[in-house]
Design a protein around this nucleic acid. Sequence first.
DNA 1: CTCGACAACTAGAGCGCGCTAGTAGAGCGC
DNA 2: GCGCTCTACTAGCGCGCTCTAGTTGTCGAG
Lengths: 344, 344
Amino acid sequence: MSAPGKQRPTMADVAAKAGVSRALVSIVFRGQPGAGRETRERVLRVADEIGYRPDNAARLLARGRSRTLGVMFTAHQIFQADLVEGIYAEAERLDYEVLLSATGPGRGEAKAVEALLSHRCEAVILLGPGATDADLDALGQRTVAVSVGRRVPRARVDSVHTAEGKGVRQAMDHLVELGHRRIVHIDGGRGPGSAERRRAYRAAMRRHGLESEMRVIPGDHTEQSGIDTGRLLLAEREGGQALPTAVLAGNDRCAMGLLMALTRSGIEVPRDLSVVGYDDSHLSHLMPIGLTTVRQDALLMAEYAVRFAVDRLENRELEPREAVLDSKLVVRGTSGPAPVEGPA
Amino acid sequence: MSAPGKQRPTMADVAAKAGVSRALVSIVFRGQPGAGRETRERVLRVADEIGYRPDNAARLLARGRSRTLGVMFTAHQIFQADLVEGIYAEAERLDYEVLLSATGPGRGEAKAVEALLSHRCEAVILLGPGATDADLDALGQRTVAVSVGRRVPRARVDSVHTAEGKGVRQAMDHLVELGHRRIVHIDGGRGPGSAERRRAYRAAMRRHGLESEMRVIPGDHTEQSGIDTGRLLLAEREGGQALPTAVLAGNDRCAMGLLMALTRSGIEVPRDLSVVGYDDSHLSHLMPIGLTTVRQDALLMAEYAVRFAVDRLENRELEPREAVLDSKLVVRGTSGPAPVEGPA
DNA sequence: CTCGACAACTAGAGCGCGCTAGTAGAGCGC
DNA sequence: GCGCTCTACTAGCGCGCTCTAGTTGTCGAG
């Protein structure tokens, strides 16, 4: 239809064809007052006809602000998909745009963030950042930054995370009530919330007088980490060491990997061993028996993240804020009474 | 460090501080010849000092091309995460940037694509588009578009997908060899590749003389769809109808949901029923017994998608191309011999 | 000494839009 | 008639960059 080989139409084209000035077209497209009803309609009709659509790059340049939030995420973290959806929704409500940038092998966090900033994002929302506190602080000095899933104390960065402590405490109480004593924790490494979860695990073990049973196995927030841990535990059993009776995994993906490794080797969950995850990502509902896990409200987290970013854009001088959302244990099928044992 | 409350520095600031012209700074930052070694270094040093970074929006505007590829994807489709990673990698190789836009509830494909185009993406890569062929053709007229995972015949759109037919055929042969006759297929609805998979399923059933057993259950590419089908089959069994002995799911997620629903009700896979997925997303390795599935090579698909987009950018007049990549069955634990039955 | 040839650099016109400051014309009160 | 306000519209600068068409200075060949 449109003249082949030609550039995309601009405001000037619309203006010419509608017989008005370029400025008027601009007014119409921004929905501002100052254009007559009839003219407004004509402009929109003409624009539609010639296939005009506003050019964001130019828009960005011209108006000082971009009204765009950048989101750094990790493609493979399912929980973050929920967060991204929530962010889109809340941003739209507040009339902001969203730009995504994924990290992954071959594309580190720094690169992903640079990409966002170079596109003039006014703020960046980092989902589960792995960068150091110092790096985050530096970023916070340079622009508006919000960390989701990881608290960043003493840095110029807002953060949103769940009360990891509370969730872990509930999970641990749940396990202890079921009679478990040998409860190990698979660590999330530098993953978001890992430090808090680890700390809460240790505290709970001490509180229940299980200090001697305390054990943190290094890991990260991937299925592989769960699989590795499963293999490790099985190998230890071969060597005569008793299996733990319960495992508190770093997150759902890790729990999932662990379950797979164990089930494959004939260990029955929860009869022989209980497993608790973290996140309540939709993975949790999908395992054959339903994963007992700690729930985080992704939508609410997303809402807070966007609000924090927008608030700070309106007032740079705000003190860094921290939202600690409620977390709570969801009991499903992977946790059960501790297996009965002979005397040590 | 930087003057508080002030805007981000521009080329002019760098130029002034380095005692050169703005144009020279531009040359340096574009890595073009035409600047002396010493000057070049000075400019870069000064830029670093005042924290200058090029403004992409302005860059976009000024040079005709954006060298940016837009990618539409669905946050929750795990397989697409692999594709995204591949796209980033290949785009970087060809010196293109990538912009992501997710679809989801409350954010349709049209919206996601508009967002990309308004950011001046030169081409859009659509991962598993659900739009109609006509819509895609229209999009292809307006800009350069590549469809991944779905062929779009007779439209001005390149496409990359796997030889769905071959994969399904292999899977069906595998099941028939194992003695299965009552094989049902859970349809992927408007999902990418669904039509081809459905067709190949029907053809295979006919070829094996199982026309009377042919059954396609409506569904889509989500876990929920698998769960629903599981419930449906179980309900039918209550009603006296025999279970199928094998199910060819629309994709891995669907297979996963099905597995969950069945296992929860005491059906044992593959003893009572075999399940085959599609995608070989990393989910496949994670189920307790490993999912038998049809493998698609995400990285290769991503490579083709980017190449197609870039080639067409260089020559708009190219005929629409279609890459059909090899697919092949990966046999894991969810498929086994058909259960022995009494005479009908 | 003059004339290129070349390297190092600069001036300045846009890219497509937003926005401020303005103008034209209609309506109204006095 | 005047001045006023209000609506509907326009002129034109500038956002930060790229890029073409220069300008200057140096050096070697003739």
